[in-house]
């Protein structure tokens, strides 16, 4: 399959609000994205608007505040997806198709039990959490991510191992945590199975605490993937740095028009094109 034939479903409900720029990122690479309301996938929309998840090659949960995030961020979206779409989503994941969650999308994937995914493609209960930032504040700031993945993750194939990308964060609940009684063990398991994708670092690539880790995440974790590598969640927003001209320092540090976030979307298309 060619990258331009890849059909991407960008999922929307009320309050997801980064779908347009996510759509645009895929569209600019020549793929076939579509913004699809959850109701269009679950049969709750008027008939002519309905869509089938299996008709898409990739699924993206964009950022935002789905359903307002008035309970744990992503929880309501996850509950709706789980109740109405599990039967389509589980085979979608099992077939190896990529699912990306950014920011609120990452929160939803964790709430769905799809990440870390210790217990299969969709665990019965969440296995981790994205807690309130240590600062207690919403933080919109530049963050730098080191690619820690050794090759499992389908979303970072075009970023060198150990490479640092700039990717801005904007969230109030992004602190990745694991059940405290199994924290070390599960963290090791994530490491061992190459599920850690990104860690927050400073611009020099060193781990450096707040503000470079904007939320106090365990072990500076910014993004993880499933054991199979085809489901990834990350708090920072690659779609916001698709071009260099939306980097926070492009007027002083210009290295060409390509933004650091583009690699994630390219990797998805390459992965799908190669595999399907």
């Amino acid at each position: 399959m060619r990258p331009r034939d890849v059909r991407v479903c960008v999922l929307r409900i009320e309050g997801t609000n980064c779908e347009q720029e996510a759509y645009q990122a895929f569209a600019d690479l020549g793929a076939q994205p579509e913004i699809v309301h959850l109701k269009q996938l679950t049969g709750a929309a008027p008939e002519r608007m309905r869509r089938n998840l299996e008709d898409y090659h990739a699924l993206m949960f964009p950022g935002g505040f789905s359903a307002g995030d008035y309970v744990r961020a992503g929880a309501v979206l996850a509950a709706r997806v789980k109740s109405a779409l599990s039967k389509n989503l589980v085979p979608f994941i099992e077939s190896g198709k990529p699912v990306l969650g950014v920011c609120n999308g990452f929160q939803a994937l964790v709430e769905l039990g799809m990440l870390p995914g210790f217990g299969g493609p969709m665990a019965a209960a969440p296995e981790a959490a994205l807690g309130t930032n240590d600062s207690g504040r919403f933080e919109c700031r530049p963050t730098f991510l080191k690619n820690e993945n050794k090759g499992k993750c389908a979303f970072t194939a075009t970023i060198p191992h150990g490479g640092v990308i700039m990717c801005p964060s904007a969230h109030a609940e992004g602190k990745f945590i694991l059940p405290i009684e199994q924290e070390r063990e599960l963290l090791k398991r994530l490491e061992d199975s190459d599920q850690i994708v990104f860690r927050y670092v400073n611009p020099e690539g060193k781990r450096a605490g707040h503000p470079w880790n904007p939320n106090g995440s365990l072990d500076d974790i910014a993004g993880i993937c499933s054991a199979q590598g085809n489901v990834m969640g990350m708090m920072p927003h690659p779609e916001r740095v698709f071009t260099r001209y939306t980097h926070p320092d492009w007027t002083r540090n210009f290295v060409g028009p390509r933004g650091d976030g583009m690699a994630i979307f390219e990797s998805i298309l390459e992965y799908v094109a190669h595999r399907f």
């Binding site: 609000n17 980064c18 347009q20 720029e21 645009q24 950022g63 504040r137 919403f138 933080e139 919109c140 700031r141 801005p168 904007a170 927003h237 779609e239 916001r240 698709f242 001209y245 939306t246």
Partner: peptide, 12 residues
Amino acid sequence: RLYDHEVRGSTV
């Protein structure tokens, strides 16, 4: 920093 000034991905 309490305001998201980058959502929509077009803040140059």
